[in-house]
Amino acid sequence: MRQSLFPHPKSLLLVLAAALLPPLLGVIPGIPVGYVLYLVCLALIYAIVALGLNLLIGYAGQFSLGHAGFLAIGAYASAVLTQRFGWPFLLALPMAGLLTAAVGFLLGLPALRLSGPYLALVTLGFGLSIPQLVLWRGELTGGAGGLRDLPPASVLGLELRSESAYYYLVFLVIVALTLFARNVVQSHTGRAFIAIRDSEIAAQAMGVNLTRYKTTAFALSAFYAGVAGSLYAHLIRFISPESFTVILSVEFLTMIVVGGLGSVSGSIVGALFLTALPEVFARLPVLKDFKNLFIVVFGAVLILTILFFPRGLAGAWSTRTRPIPPPAEPAARPQEAV
């Protein structure tokens, strides 16, 4: 039943179409192919973060306002490993993911005892602290000036300098990570995540070890962000603390809310949509003079999505998402039970 690699012919078609994107763009006249591919790469990298964030929020029901911090850790890890220590990119990429996962695991530890507003705040503080720590360890991280001229990604001696080559790299990574995420959410581990989200009481009664699965969710989510960070660093080849603000964390949150909480495909669609949106708005005649318009747009999109499409874009085309149901009983604040 759920066994084949691509269960729907539709998703197989989508993957094929995406694989043909660079040559297809080339035949359309007047399109700045390099820039468009660069943007698509960036959107797909953000989509990887969104996938991980959705595993954490949409499935395991935890919260994070600090994912830009994980992205930063992955980016700096990869940059320092390749530039300072001469690691090959192909080794630095998974290492960035694993290092970030370890940090995610550590952040998951306080999360065990915290929920709701407390957890939101701790993750926010984490996201704020990472750029500060980067500035503090300037001799390693380049401080406020950032790290420049990072080595280009290379695979088995082949340097991926062109946008279309890099696009294929990002594309392969995201396909692999999407399949992994989809497998996880349909399995033992994913059901434990959802059980924790739906009812920690029920989850425990069924034998779900909250400690293990909450830290797993944080570590897994951070792994995705770490891999994305590595890809980000070698796409832009320049990183500085300013690239990883809290606003970016909020953007990731917006992506999964708009795409659909608890939807793997929604994470990707949300990331593509929200990366494209400011580009489109910046080209509209009246609106392009409106400085920082994207802030208002993100805010409005967040609000409107929650109010009118609580299941996100994914909810509109698919019945396979898992909406977070309202609580069984209208939120009575728990009292001590007798």
Partner: peptide, 28 residues
């Protein structure tokens, strides 16, 4: 106390969480 967003079948699969162990890598 059910997992309200899950199907009946998935609830019964969670019910076997303790008796059918598994790991993240094997699942993913």
């Amino acid at each position: 106390e059910l997992c309200r967003s899950m199907t009946t079948l998935d609830n019964l699969l969670v019910g076997q969480h303790a008796t059918k162990p598994g790991g993240l890598l094997g699942d993913g």
